[in-house]
């Protein structure tokens, strides 16, 4: 299996402090990898590091064989990585369709296949394509955010807590969409607070603590691990 994402011994953080103290992970093609861990473990930070949003002081990040450490975010987008932030992840004053259009900003040529693909994954959005994204419910907004990122047909999709604040029904729906997207050959790395549900649905998982790797393995293995359970799954 070829690895789409390889992160080696990453050290970095905001300002002078290093939040990440040597994090390593990899994600294969068409794989869902979930990052879990207690608050402040550096989950979101690790994800932002991939996207060049913080100072990386050591280690390396490779996407599909190309080293992207220290690149500007717009070059990383061109390299086929899309990132969906946890908050303010839609253009509120633009319509659903325009949000998707912005997602495809770097693409030229006929986009109708890309729109069809996103609207097939998210039928709710097709109905509301003329609505302003800011007027949608939280779950629908999350779908717009994911749809925007998928318009670029990325190799690697990074999702920062896509289910935060959503009802269980939407959470299940978002997970199902992740599986559908994976089955089209996209690698997904996501950070999750709902560790139990996320590990149950992901192919593999990483447990971070204090800015470093603590455990890794398939979702099922991690769920069965005594130490992981004690740490934060609530016993």
């Amino acid at each position: 299996m070829s690895d789409i994402l390889v992160m080696r011994d990453l050290v970095g953080g905001y300002g002078d402090a290093n939040v990440l103290q040597g994090v390593s992970m990899r994600a294969a093609k068409a794989e869902i990898v979930v990052i879990v861990g207690p608050n402040g473990a550096g989950k979101s930070t690790a994800m932002k590091a991939i996207f060049g949003l913080l100072k990386v002081r050591g280690g390396s990040i490779t996407v599909d064989g190309t080293e992207i450490t220290g690149w500007e975010p717009n070059r990383i987008v061109e390299a086929g990585v899309c990132y969906v932030p946890q908050v303010s992840n839609v253009f509120r004053e633009m319509t659903v369709h325009e949000n998707l259009e912005m997602g495809a900003f770097l693409r030229t040529g006929d986009l109708s296949a890309a729109y069809d693909r996103v609207y097939t994954l998210f039928p709710d959005l097709k109905e509301r394509r003329k609505a302003l994204a800011g007027n949608l419910s939280g779950g629908q907004r999350q779908m717009v955010a994911m749809g925007r990122a998928l318009m670029l047909e990325p190799k690697l999709l990074l999702l920062d807590e896509p289910t935060a604040g959503l009802s269980p029904r939407y959470m299940e729906q978002i997970f199902q969409i992740c599986r559908d997207v994976r089955d089209t050959g996209v690698t997904i790395v996501l950070v999750e607070q709902h560790a139990k549900q996320a590990l149950a649905f992901a192919d593999r998982g990483y447990v971070l603590a204090a800015g470093a790797n603590r455990h890794e393995g398939t979702g099922a293995d991690l769920l069965a691990d005594r130490d992981v359970a004690d740490m934060f799954l609530g016993g």
Binding site: P73, N74, E78, P85, S88, V90, R92, M102, F105
Partner: peptide, 11 residues
């Protein structure tokens, strides 16, 4: 609307 997201979209 959202300068950070515009950058993330490659603008």
């Amino acid at each position: 609307d959202n300068p950070d997201l515009a950058l993330l979209s490659g603008v």
